[in-house]
Design a protein around this nucleic acid. Sequence first.
DNA 1: ACATTACATTCCCATATAGGAATATGTCAA
DNA 2: TTGACATATTCCTATATGGGAATGTAATGT
Lengths: 124, 124
Amino acid sequence: MARASTTSDAFNAVAEPRRREILSYLAGIERPVGEIVAALGLEQPSVSKHLRVLREVGLVRMRCQGRQKLYRTNAEAIRPLHEWAETFERYWQHQLQRVKERAEEMIRQGSTDLNSPDPNLKEK
Amino acid sequence: MARASTTSDAFNAVAEPRRREILSYLAGIERPVGEIVAALGLEQPSVSKHLRVLREVGLVRMRCQGRQKLYRTNAEAIRPLHEWAETFERYWQHQLQRVKERAEEMIRQGSTDLNSPDPNLKEK
DNA sequence: ACATTACATTCCCATATAGGAATATGTCAA
DNA sequence: TTGACATATTCCTATATGGGAATGTAATGT
């Protein structure tokens, strides 16, 4: 099986950096496609394609106005993501506590280099 | 260009539902691969591959113990996701406010069906 | 009717999966 | 050493991209 479709859920849709930029740009405001293109410096077809994905998962809403289509971010659709991440909040707070304690311990001993990236992972 | 690598960042890594399950399972606890396999009912090679991805983006940490490898979630790496989503919090609160107001308005008029999915999107 | 504007869609292609099967690697025990 | 156990990696394949180029379509102005 291949990777899940970008339109399968919000998690897959926001994995693309450009789509995150679009969502940020359209947060709280309503803008026609042309302005998104101009503001983000992307190709128009590219923007249209990203908007299609975002619309299919409900991350943006669209409204027609003459020949323009006005888009805006539907922030509600981002909540599930926020809530999922939030379930880990208590854990990173514990970790911070431990890191702090280790740091104090190391300072007491004159050592250094806390929290280095995984050394077991062969590079590349 | 194809889709970005799953190992390019946390956003891409957590797009896969099984990897989210693994992260939830390993939150706060440290477990060998075999237990993850048993708990989640996945194939062992599949779990190893997902763990590799998670490890490359720093979402899990690993420690060897005899012939076992103990993994645990590195909650710190989930924070960027949480913070990104959080930037939209004020917007979904505004939306909720509007929805509420509309609901009250409709009740006053006897109408129904608020917040239906995008009707302009041709189905499949 | 015709040209123009504003978007959307289609076609092509290099690339990256995720799962299944098979195999490799590393560690401990007898 | 040999075998069993715990994981990791490789090979294979169907599928889904995202970008670029070209084209389609709907609404507006003259």
